[in-house]
């Protein structure tokens, strides 16, 4: 159904305004919507088109010319050099495990809640390792795994590999494995590497950065997906089967692996964890791929 161009322009205007975090004029927006049912439809179409485009664009390499250079990260040695400097500065605090620090570790499938007195709380997903400081509840290091941070009194600084996340009063989820760091924000804002790229990640955004690289990308994420593992659900967007297997292992405590043939295949979709936990074969229907037990783990994919 083709949209009237004037209405589409109006809808686009509203989409721009409501897309600003400071937008307040919901009554005027309601009035515009109520004026004609076609308006809501037009707004939905615009929002969907814009969201889809925003998610698709990072798949393209960033062009070398013009202002794209602005958000292209500094050359690697440069970022690395600064990172080394930062690491050196904090070395006494974290890397050498001063008396005040301690480790919280979860086994696969386990969920644990840690209260940070006067600061907030951390819900730690299975198969994760976090270093906390008894003397300073405002710093932590996520060594590996995944956790949802609810920070009531900012600032709070989280180190993830060589990256630093500075929170400014917020709820955010961080996942860290050998390949990648992923930060998703559901409330407030988090600054990614304030000393380097200095990117503010806002609600509904997900920033990913590969290990050992200063490059990063930002995509949209449904706020309901942030920390959804706590509710026993997991959503994948264009994830490789290897990633799916690793995440499922970590969160269910049941071992999964992807076959070498299928490991790089990409899938999208939502999985409920508890049915998969009780019957891993259910994944087969979900993914349309064979799932079998190879004696050690549940193997997903074609052999």
């Amino acid at each position: 159904m083709a949209l009237d161009e004037t209405i589409r322009d109006q809808a686009a205007g509203w989409a721009v305004r409501t897309g600003d975090p400071g937008f307040e004029d919901w009554d005027a927006f309601t009035a515009w919507l109520a004026a004609d049912p076609v308006h809501a439809r037009a707004y939905d179409e615009v929002m969907l088109a814009v969201n889809e485009a925003s998610e698709a664009l990072p798949a393209l390499p960033v062009p070398d010319n013009d202002e794209e250079a602005v958000h292209r990260p500094p050359r690697r040695w440069f970022g690395g050099a600064i990172a080394a400097g930062v690491a050196l500065a904090v070395a006494a605090g974290v890397w050498q495990m001063m008396p005040g620090t301690y480790v919280v570790e979860t086994s696969p499938g386990e969920v644990r809640l840690v209260e940070l007195e006067g600061v907030g709380q951390i819900e730690i997903a299975g198969g994760s390792r976090i270093i906390l400081d008894r003397d300073d509840a405002r710093v932590a290091t996520l060594e590996s795994g995944q956790a949802l941070f609810t920070i009531e009194r900012s600032p709070f600084t989280l180190r993830v590999g060589e990256d630093t996340l500075l929170d400014v009063g917020t709820v955010f989820d961080v996942k860290h494995d050998a390949d990648e760091m992923a930060l998703a924000v559901s409330e407030g804002a988090v600054v990614f590497n304030p000393q380097r790229q200095n990117v503010t990640v806002t609600p509904g955004q997900r920033l990913t950065s590969r290990t050992g690289s200063a490059a990063y990308s930002v995509a949209t994420v449904a706020p309901s997906e942030v920390g959804e593992w706590r509710e026993g659900r997991l959503t994948f967007h264009d994830a490789t089967l290897a990633e799916v297997a690793a995440d499922l292992t970590r969160l269910t405590g049941v071992s999964f692996t992807a076959t070498s043939v299928s490991a790089q295949e990409r899938v999208s979709g939502s999985v409920l964890l508890s049915p998969v936990q009780s019957d891993p074969r259910q994944l087969a229907t979900l993914l349309g791929l064979p799932v079998r037990h190879n004696g050690e783990a549940w193997e997903i994919g074609i052999r």
């Binding site: 161009e5 589409r8 809808a11 686009a12 721009v16 969907l48 088109a49 814009v50 889809e52 485009a53």
Partner: peptide, 8 residues
């Protein structure tokens, strides 16, 4: 936004 909606 309008151009992307038209494209879609």
């Amino acid at each position: 936004y309008a151009a992307l909606a038209a494209l879609k």
